[in-house]
């Protein structure tokens, strides 16, 4: 089956090897007999409901993020419609921030967000940088997800909002709540890069299964597991790094 990915602003938001996430999705889809078609979505290019099975927003530096923020915020309705239609969404770092209600920078200037995730982000003193490990539970399955974080923004989830995971080691959303990322149905956002998916193949498969559910108009299919020998080794090293040198919650 063909899985259509709308990759938002690949020229602006690509700072933490977002290409790696795409490579992992493409290969793991192919190994299950599916084809991933990635369509870049630049500033002003419309998203029509039903066009995409998965939307992806990566991270950028402040300057690049400021360049695309108004365009992303203006997509509030089309993004909400795509998600209501059952499309999946993955947002990393800057993309995760800008899909909340707003991002307020150091000088107090506010970038508007697209309002997909129930959170607000405010730049704090000092960047939260380091290896990070979080414990996730998605649809009854439990995994650890290992990554690297590097963000000035402190993201506060609304009361009752569902995080992607709980911080085991590292800072997470704000360095104090113990939450990391956010989930709304088939949409997940996270600060974890490194990139996110190569060393967390189970999360890659979860995202693919959500996208396939939209593509086929049915439930997420079951996947035969892959051996993932190298991926597991990479995950273990990254997890050890988070314990040894990840940021400490305040």
């Amino acid at each position: 089956m063909r899985i259509v990915v709308g990759h938002l602003y690949p020229e602006h938001l690509n700072i933490y090897a977002d290409r790696g996430n795409m490579a992992v999705l493409a290969r793991r889809a192919a190994l299950r007999g599916h084809e991933l078609e990635v369509r870049p979505l630049g500033v002003g290019e419309p998203i029509r409901p039903g066009d995409h099975d998965l939307l992806y927003v990566g991270g950028g530096q402040d300057r690049e993020q400021a360049l695309i923020a108004p365009d992303l915020a203006a997509r509030r309705r089309s993004l909400a419609e795509a998600l209501a239609d059952g499309a999946a969404l993955l947002a990393v770092c800057g993309g995760y921030q800008l899909l909340g209600r707003f991002y307020r920078g150091h000088q107090g200037a506010e970038l508007p967000g697209a309002g997909i995730f129930p959170h607000e982000t405010v730049a704090g003193q000092g960047r939260l940088i380091g290896d990070v490990l979080i414990a996730c539970e998605l649809d009854g399955e439990r995994w650890n997800v290992a990554g690297f974080e590097n963000h000035a923004g402190r993201t506060r989830l609304d009361a009752g909002a569902e995080p992607l995971g709980r911080v085991v080691a590292g800072f997470g959303n704000d360095g104090e709540s113990g939450f990391e990322g956010c989930r709304v149905g088939r949409a997940i956002g996270t600060y974890l890069h490194g990139p996110l998916l190569p060393r967390n193949p189970w999360l890659a498969d979860w995202v693919l299964r959500q996208a396939l559910a939209h593509a086929s108009g049915s439930e997420p299919p079951a996947f035969e597991p892959l051996p993932d020998v190298l991926e597991r080794q990479a995950h273990e090293v990254a997890a050890r790094r988070a314990y040894a040198r990840g940021g400490k919650l305040r």
Binding site: Y16, A17, G130, N150
Partner: peptide, 9 residues
């Protein structure tokens, strides 16, 4: 660099 994500770029 503790962040090795650059190898993907």
């Amino acid at each position: 660099g503790q962040d090795v994500s650059w190898i993907w770029d």
